[in-house]
Simulated scan of single mutants.
Amino acid sequence: MKKLFYIGAMLALLLIACGEEEAKPKEEKPVVAQVKEKEEKKEPATITIEQYESKFIEAFNNVKGDSNTTLGKMEEIDHGRYSLILNSDIMLFADVNKKDEVTAVNLAAMSSAVDNYNNLLKSAFQAMITSVDESITDTQQSVIFDKLGITGDEKMLDHTDTYKYNDITFVYRAKNDEGTLTFQANLD
């Protein structure tokens, strides 16, 4: 009987000891996982409309093919939406959230801009990419253009493509029947 009592007591101690050892790693794992998750999960960089305007104008001036084009200022056209006119066929739109942080940028153009203002349109596309992510190189921009079918000729006038790069979703839409094309960057 003493042996049975002794074995029972040992089993109870063993179960309690094992239970405590298992509880400690379970408690530590979520904390360690949370710390690692916070380290790995980087908050997306935020940018105000004024900062974005400055970045776009600087990028545009660095890449523009038409030295005669000068840009004005971004104007609020609706609550949360701003625009910048590049010329009569090409406009830039920026959407902001309640904190006035840019969430999406769109370049809209008439399809005639492909023929009439090809260099200006290309410069605007390049400036838009650079202004949403300065780390994107010229080679990476070419990859983005290839993935989206932005060729600079009539082939780009009637299709839609999406490509995600550096947590930015780029969307290209062209509708030949409407005579419009848009290039959008959604900052995720």
Rank of each mutant, 00 (worst) to 15 (best):
S111T: 14
I57A: 05
P25C: 00
I57F: 07
K73W: 02
V132S: 04
L187T: 08
F183K: 03
P30Y: 15
S131F: 06
I57K: 14
Q51D: 13
F60H: 02
Q140N: 10
E75F: 03
E40G: 06
L157M: 15
T69F: 01
N87D: 14
T182Q: 11
A127W: 00
D138R: 02
A113I: 01
E43W: 12
K3L: 13
N186Y: 00
N116E: 12
L14G: 07
N61S: 11
R81L: 12
Y6A: 07
I85V: 15
T137Q: 03
F93N: 02
A124I: 07
E40S: 12
E20L: 14
Q184A: 08
E75Q: 14
N118K: 10
D115K: 09
E178G: 06
S88I: 04
L4R: 13
E20S: 14
E20H: 09
V35Y: 08
D89V: 05
V35Q: 12
A12G: 06
Y117F: 13
M10S: 13
L4S: 11
K3G: 04
H159D: 05
L92N: 05
D78K: 15
G72Q: 11
R81M: 14
N166Q: 11
A45H: 12
V31F: 12
T69V: 14
T46M: 06
